[in-house]
Write a protein that binds this DNA or RNA. Structure first.
Lengths: 328, 328
DNA sequence: TTGTAAGCGTTATCAG
DNA sequence: CTGATAACGCTTACAA
């Protein structure tokens, strides 16, 4: 910066002023500075800038599994609003590992981001009112979180899915639930059981399998379900990755979906449109989720004193071909 | 930090020393410092640290499209080695936008990362020997890049795919190529034409369509191909996302794959195993790509003077059910 | 072994 | 409008 100042024949402070537009500088001088910047290829050092300003123009985001296509969709939504508002998105993938989550969270904080978007993995412990940058939680609620949050209507969505199965005449329904420590998994389980209760369908406990929202455990849970007697006529997999695993399990068991066993899922990833058969699933708006969360975070950055908000997005049932109609 | 020093009854410098293990501090003092750190919940400020050390423990990575499942796989590979070596991975998604790429690249640099991993999108212009942190390019080569690089044997992989089609009796073969400014797309095109030349099969120029490595343009290119007369008996889509689009196009055209038209692809994403029909595709090791690139970058960080390396990973043909055998 | 102080690249205050 | 200068939080000679 000093070099620029010398090259342009002005003082250091003036350079700072023209870079930040923080004071009106006489045009000729301004030009000289700008030229010098161009000539020397000067790039301000964000580290020192952040150090001085006590915050950077970064928005940090922590996601549990970059490999699950649902999360990249959320990220896209976040990025679109962050980038437009000249924040830069910086992403950390915790791989569903809570120690990684903790590490990344504090690492991120020590870079003084303008704000943080968190999709918590395990029993995350984010102190709600801890000092530091504003945090908004996305998709799942950490233990005791009272701050801003945007989620999807998981309970209602799961209810719709189960209801659809029931409407199609299914009575022996297996569930592949997500990890019980995740609030969205809990809510989906709740929606499921409520639908069955409302329809006065008894729930066999062994029909409820807990898996990890990934394909591998979806596969093994489905295998278990398929070997039970009586075999469930339908399985509700509470996310699409697990549905993929279930599909595989059905195929390897020499069974056919939906003829022998129906599958309904949750997420509505693009790829489930092309599976064999195309999956009936409850769509949740990933992009919107990210978009909304980012908007909320920006609001919070500008006005930190507002009361915490909770936004819930709706899901919609997308009927395709993986559920058999038992009524006819 | 001063607070810690006071709380522990030592000087500021001592605190730094125990934090970094940069000097042997008498055990009782050390413990007092550590306690103070715990009590006050002290987290060192990475900004000032980086400012002083002139580098941070961050590895920056720039990817073109987080929505294409191939890249998350690469990211996972990178993350595993970065995290283990106590570097933190920070990710930027350019959304295939070269201006975003430039912005992120310079933004990233101004945070003084220990190194940068770049999957270039457009005709990226990364000066090979520009000062700053070491950069290794992944998957594609930017214009005139002479530095470290790890890619996949694209030409050979594409050759295998085309060869497989030929072996199965196909002679009218359509190609959905990637963007011509991407070196991996160029190489795949090269492998394709070479296979056809070697087999003395003439190539109709209109059978070669250029798309953008995404599902939407894969779909429209396939639509165009399917309306040509004579209709190609097989289509080689040069990545899986475009194959998904092609599959959709086939379905919407009331045709059947592989009966009416065969499809072979490139990438080998997990999801292509479950499509209808399961796709025959050339697998490229995404995770390995990231893993290798990260290893190379770490080497480079430690010994910047080694000559530039180029590592090329092999691909393998995975035969499934999307290619018809015309020979019988 | 411990403490002091200079300096990393910026910004912001304040006197010209 | 411009230009010194202190301060941001930390590391590291160097002195004690």
């Amino acid at each position: 910066m000093l070099q620029i100042a010398r090259e342009a024949g002005v003082s250091l402070g003036t350079v700072s002023h023209v870079m930040n537009g923080t004071a009106i500088v006489r045009e000729p001088l301004r030009q000289r500075v700008l030229n010098a910047v161009k000539n020397l290829g000067y790039e301000p050092n964000e580290l020192s800038r952040g150090l001085r300003l006590n915050k950077t123009s970064i928005i940090g985001m922590i996601i549990p599994d970059i490999t699950n296509p649902f999360f990249p969709a959320v990220v896209r939504g976040v990025e679109d609003v962050a980038y437009k508002n000249s924040y830069r998105l910086v992403l950390c993938n915790t791989d569903n590992d809570s120690s990684k989550e903790i590490t990344y969270l504090s690492q991120l904080k020590s870079f003084l981001p303008a704000g943080i978007l968190l999709i918590p993995s395990m029993g995350s412990t984010v102190a709600t009112n801890s000092s530091g940058p504003p945090v908004v939680c996305v998709d799942r609620r950490p233990q005791g979180w009272k701050g801003d949050m945007v989620t999807v209507a998981n309970r209602e969505g799961a209810y719709k899915a189960a209801r659809h199965l029931i409407d199609m005449g299914h009575r022996q329904i297996g569930l592949i639930a997500g990890p019980s420590y995740l609030t969205n998994a809990q809510d989906r389980l709740l929606g499921f059981t409520q639908a069955l209760n409302d329809a006065q369908i008894p729930i066999a406990p062994e029909y409820i399998q807990e898996a990890l929202f990934d394909r591998a455990t979806g596969y093994s849970s489905a295998m278990r379900l398929l070997q039970m007697l009586p075999r469930p006529t339908a399985i509700f997999t509470t996310n699409d990755l697990m549905a993929m695993g279930a599909l595989l399990a059905v195929r390897e068991s020499k069974l056919s979906c939906p003829k022998d066993v129906s599958i309904i899922s949750f997420d509505g990833l693009e790829q489930t449109e092309l599976t064999d058969p195309p999956l009936t699933t409850v769509y949740q708006p990933g992009y919107q989720l990210g978009y909304t969360a980012a908007r909320l975070l920006l609001e919070r950055i500008d006005a930190s004193k507002q009361p915490a908000q909770e936004i819930v997005l709706e899901t919609t049932l997308r009927v395709r071909n993986s559920v058999a109609n038992l009524n006819r």
